[in-house]
C-alpha cells in the first residue's frame, strides 16, 4: 500500500500550488477548489488510506497558505471527507455525470461551511459569484479524474 504515497504527496502539493497561484481578477471568482477535488478523488480511490485525518491536515495547510483563520478549511474538508467516505462505494460505480453532481454537492457544502465560519469571524464576500467554484469544480471533475487516473497508473 505504500507505493501510492509519492503520488499522493505530489498531487496534494500540486493542488496547494494551484490554490495560491496569482490570478487575474476575472479568474479569481471561478477558480476551482483544487485541494477538495484531489481529496474527493483520493477518498474515493483509496478510502482506507485517505480519510478524515488527511483531510484535516490538508485543510490546516490550506489555512496557513491562504492566511485564513486556522481550522476553517480543516473543518470543511473533514466534513467533505466524511461524506465522501460514506458515499464512495456508490459513487465509484456512478456514471461520470452523476459523479460530477456529487462533487458539486460536496464542494457546495465546503463553501457553505467556510462561509459560516468567515461570517462568524469577520468578513464575507456578498456576491453570488462566491458559489461559482463549486459549479466550475463539478464541470472539471471528469477531466480531473481522468488526469488523476492516468497519473496514478503511470507512477504505480
Amino acid at each position: 500500500m505504500g507505493r501510492n504515497t509519492g503520488v499522493l504527496i505530489f498531487t496534494f502539493v500540486l493542488m496547494y500550488v494551484l490554490m495560491i497561484l496569482p490570478l487575474p481578477e476575472w479568474a479569481q471568482w471561478a477558480w476551482p477548489e483544487w485541494s477538495t477535488l484531489a481529496l474527493i478523488y483520493w477518498t474515493m480511490v483509496l478510502p482506507s488510506r485517505v480519510g478524515m485525518l488527511t483531510a484535516w491536515i490538508l485543510g490546516l495547510g490550506l489555512d496557513v497558505l491562504q492566511g485564513t483563520v486556522l481550522g476553517q478549511h480543516a473543518m470543511a474538508l473533514t466534513l467533505v471527507a466524511y461524506l465522501s467516505l460514506i458515499l464512495h462505494r456508490r459513487v465509484r460505480v456512478y456514471p461520470i455525470i452523476q459523479q460530477s453532481f456529487i462533487v458539486f454537492l460536496l464542494i457546495g457544502l465546503q463553501l457553505l461551511v467556510v462561509r459560516f465560519i468567515q461570517a462568524a469571524v469577520g468578513t464575507v464576500p456578498n456576491s453570488i459569484l462566491y458559489w461559482l467554484p463549486c459549479l466550475v469544480s463539478a464541470f472539471l471533475w471528469p477531466f480531473f479524474s481522468y488526469f488523476m487516473n492516468s497519473l496514478r497508473y503511470r507512477f504505480t
Binding site: 478510502p47 485525518l53 484535516w56 486556522l70 481550522g71 476553517q72 473543518m75 467516505l85 465560519i117 469571524v121
Partner: peptide, 25 residues
C-alpha cells in the same frame, strides 16, 4: 470495518477544529 468512517472520529475532529478556530480568532 476500516472503510466505514466512524462518526465519533468526525465529531472529535470537528470539535478540535472548532476549538482551534475560536482560539486562533
Amino acid at each position: 470495518a476500516r472503510n466505514t468512517p466512524s462518526i465519533m472520529k468526525l465529531i472529535i475532529i470537528l470539535a478540535l477544529s472548532l476549538a482551534i478556530i475560536l482560539y486562533d480568532h
